[in-house]
Every structure is written in C-alpha cells, then in structure tokens.
Design a protein around this nucleic acid. Structure first.
Length: 484
DNA sequence: TTTTGAGTTGTTCGA
DNA sequence: GTCGAACAACTCAAA
C-alpha cells in the first residue's frame, strides 16, 4: 500500500512559544509528514533591539518549557544560533523539509528579514507559509473609512470589535511526527541566555515562564482578579492585574485564548480594552515602523530634552527621593516587571520632571523588563512623552506624591520595595523628607544617607516642563501661517 | 469638502 | 473638603 508522503515541515518558532492555538504548528501537524520545531537565536538580526537581560532570562526558561512540552508529543525543539537563513536551509536539507511555517512578527527589522528569508527559501523550492498567531486582528485589515491606519485608540478598538469576535482558539496537536533523524541542535543552556553572575533570584521567585505557567496565571487572574479589575488594577500593592504581559510577549499564550477566556466574564470589558491597547501598539508599530527611534509627531524632534546622566542613573537605581518612583524602579530591577500604574508614574517622572528623553526610558525598560515588547514599549513611552499616537496632553504631569498617596495609601507597596522606609508611619511614607525629626529618629532613618531627598522639586520641575512644552508649541504654531 | 464631536490612566486653582 | 474650570489647541475619524 502506498501512502502519499509529505515532506517535512519546519515550524520556525519565535515569539509564539506554545503548542495550543499555535496556527503555524497546527497547520504543520495537519499537513502530514514530519514536523521540525526550530528556534533560531540570532540577536544580531534584531538591530538595536536584541532581547535585553530580563528577556533573555525569560527566554531561557520559556524555551526549556517548550522543549519539555514538545517531548510529550514525541517531538523536540531544535535550537540553532547564528544567521537565520543558512540555518533554515541547512535544517531543511537535513530533514527533507519542503515547507516552512512561521507566525508573523510586528518588529520592523524582523519583517524585513522574514521577507528576505521567504524569498530565498522559495527560490530553494521550500514553501513558506506565514500565520497570524500574535494578534486578534491583523494590522492590514483594520482601517479607517479613508483606508488609513488609526492613530486614536477608541475608534481603532471600535473598528476592531466591529470586525466581529476572533476565531476561537484551537487545541494543541496531540502528536507530532518526528523526522527520521533530528538535525544537530545546540543545547538551550549553550545559548548563554542566563545572567552571569546570577542575579535572577527575584525573577525566578516571581514568575513561571512557559505555556503552563501562562495558563496557570490566566486561571488565577480569572478567579481572583478580573471581577475587580477596573479598580484593583490601580493598586500596585495588590495583585489586581493579570501579569500576563511576558507570557503574551513570548506567545506562551495567545490573545485569542485570552479573549476567549474573558469574553463572557463580568468585569472583563475593561481588561479586554487592555488587550486592545496591545493590538493598537502593534498596529501603530506596523504602520509607523520608525517610531521605536523617532517620535510619531515630528515637532517633538525639537523638544529641549536635557542630558542628565546623574539623574538618569538615580532614576534607574530607584534613588530619586520620591518613594513611589523608587519603589517602582526597584520592583523592576528585582522582579523584571513593574505595575502598570507605577510605570506611568516613573515614566512621567523621567520625561516631565527630569526632561530626559523617552528613548532613554524605553532603552532601560527594554533591558530590564521580562515583558519588553517593542510595540508596547514604544507606544507607551511616546504616549507618556506626549509625542505618540493618542498621546497624553502635555499638561498631564503626574505628581508622584499625590499618585503615591492615592494608589498606595498605606504605603504598602513602597515599604515592600524601599525597605528603608518600612519603619516610617504610613502618613510619611510618600514624603519622608517632610517627616518630623522624631518620626525619622524612631524609624532610624537618616535622610541623604539611608534614603535620598528628592533629586528635583516636583513643583519647580512641573513648571519647567510646561515651559519646555511651550517652546515646541510656539514654533510649530501655524499662526505664522506658512507663506504660500 | 467641510463640519462636528471626541480624545486611557492628571493637577491645580479658586469658589 | 468638594466641585468645576482651566490647562491649549490640535488631530483624528466619521458624517
């Protein structure tokens, strides 16, 4: 009896490190023939945005989890390093693959590289099939009536929702056929993704990378968090947010799975809007690929940013003297993540109080966040700086004292990450420099030694920022209407 | 083409 | 303490 033999299919895994609802993998399994799951480590192909330290830590554990999950299906993860194209050609030759499946990415350089790889593989007789695995709605199908990309979130999200619900997620394949011989593979440890020396203790404690960890996190959030999300998400001391961002970034869970789990839940609308913001960020990066480096609003090229390495370093290390800012920056350093409310506060502080460019902030977040995602990072920093899509009005300047008091009223979050302030009564936790001498003594806290005084006075800094914003307003005002 | 309504997350000031 | 207005127009998106 003759059975038609398909050639092998390579599934090039990148930021879609899961087995369930993974369209490239599902289609490979359905195609018949051997499936070769492949991870290529080529940070040099990511331009200025290779995975940062925290992302590499995550990636190591995510790949390890994926390999172990694949082995349960009779398969394994092939790992290679170095340029993508020669590796793909080599793996195809050794396995007899005549097709390569992949999920698309949004990052500009990845798209260019993928297009090049596709042409070369097709020239070598290998069919290349891209799938959408990382977005609910592909950037090209969401358009204004005029056919343009959206630059404002609400109409963008309305237009998405008008397209109807995304398809329901699909289960993982139950089995994957192995090739007759596995091509040579690096070990995951051999990629050298883990930090040396090992500073990742806090991150190992805080996270469980991988598909199972993602599903567990989702289940916990649906049980404990989603009902109170609208208010709970603003309390950094509480576990009111989903904390799915790193899992989503690495594709350990798909947005379709998230959507499907949330759709009929009480209180899920506000949360799904956040998934919408993720979609919007990818939409904007897709259509405006220069935005990781340049402001979307070109007049911001003239903004009078200040070079201030000392204060930038104080911000990075959590030594600004504003406890809510410092707690956030230290949470980031310790756990690779920061609560969303606090991200806005620290970002506003860097950009508006210190007048340091949003690019510096974006670069620091890129290196330290486990959920570092070029689309989200870019959109959110530009949003804070006022130079991006649907940006915050420039006069919206967060007051770190008020924000601290409002969203961390007991100073619980501050005490957790700035332990020097633990013994101060809650009423002084957000303003230690205003605490009476006796309170400081009782807390055994010496200002400037144990904890710094504010590196800028917020009131002064706020006025300075408003003036700085006026300089680009004044010059860009078409009051001196362009002579025609 | 022109018009119209609207726009994630804030703060301060003065009544 | 609470409340509304001002902050500054501008751009976006749809009708």
């Amino acid at each position: 009896m003759v059975r038609r033999m398909s050639g092998a299919t390579i599934v090039w895994l990148r930021q879609d490190l899961r087995l369930a609802d993974q369209p490239a993998l599902a289609a490979a399994a359905e195609r018949g023939g051997p499936v070769v799951p492949l991870y290529l480590h080529a940070p040099e192909e990511e331009g200025d945005w290779p995975p940062g330290s925290a992302s590499r830590f995550w990636l190591h554990h995510s790949l390890t989890a994926l390999d172990s999950d694949l082995r349960r299906l009779g398969s394994r993860l092939v790992v290679r390093r170095g340029a993508s194209l020669p590796n793909l050609l080599d793996v195809a030759r050794r396995t007899g693959a005549n097709a390569m499946h992949l999920c698309t990415r949004t990052e500009p350089l990845a798209r260019i590289r993928d297009g090049l790889v596709r042409r070369e593989l097709e020239a070598a007789g290998i069919e290349v099939v891209p799938f959408n695995g990382h977005l609910l709605y592909e950037p090209e199908i969401v358009k204004t009536r005029g056919g343009d990309p959206f630059k404002v979130f609400t109409p963008f999200w309305n237009a998405c929702r008008a397209l109807g619900d995304p398809l329901p997620p699909r289960p993982a394949p139950s089995r994957l056929e192995a090739p007759p011989a596995w091509p040579v593979s690096e070990t995951i440890a051999g990629l050298g993704l883990l930090p040396q020396p090992d500073w990742a203790e806090g991150m190992r404690f805080a996270w469980r990378p991988g598909e199972r960890g993602a599903q567990q996190r989702l289940a916990e959030f649906l049980r404990d968090g989603v009902n109170d999300y609208a208010t709970g998400r603003d309390r950094p001391a509480a576990a009111g947010t989903s904390r799915l961002s790193p899992h989503l970034h690495f594709g350990e869970i798909s947005p379709r799975q998230v959507f499907d789990a949330a759709r009929d839940r009480n209180g899920s609308a506000a949360w799904l809007r956040e998934i919408g913001w993720r979609e919007f960020a990818h939409h904007v990066l897709h259509h405006f690929p220069h935005t990781p480096e340049k402001p979307l609003r070109p007049e911001f090229d003239r903004f009078p940013w200040r070079r201030d390495p000392d204060r930038l370093a104080a911000w990075q290390r959590g030594r600004t003297g504003y406890p809510i800012v410092d707690a956030g920056m230290r949470e980031l350093w310790k756990t690779g993540w920061m609560h969303n409310r606090v991200r806005m506060i620290v970002a506003s502080f860097l950009v508006k109080d210190l007048l340091v460019t949003w690019q510096e902030g974006a670069a620091w977040f890129w290196d330290t966040l486990v959920d570092a995602d070029l689309a989200n990072n870019t959109l959110n920093w530009q949003w804070t700086a006022g130079c991006g899509a649907d940006a915050a009005p420039y006069f919206r300047i967060f007051n770190p004292i008020l924000q601290g008091r409002r969203f961390d009223p007991e100073g619980e979050y501050v005490a957790r990450f700035v332990p020097e302030l633990l013994r101060l009564p809650a009423s002084h936790r957000h303003t230690p420099w205003l605490a009476p001498a006796r309170a400081l003594e009782e807390a055994e806290l010496v200002l400037d030694e144990d904890y710094p005084r504010p590196i800028v006075d917020h009131e002064t800094a706020r006025k300075r920022a408003l003036l700085a914003f006026q300089t680009i307003k004044a010059r860009s005002r078409p009051g001196s209407r362009r002579e025609v």
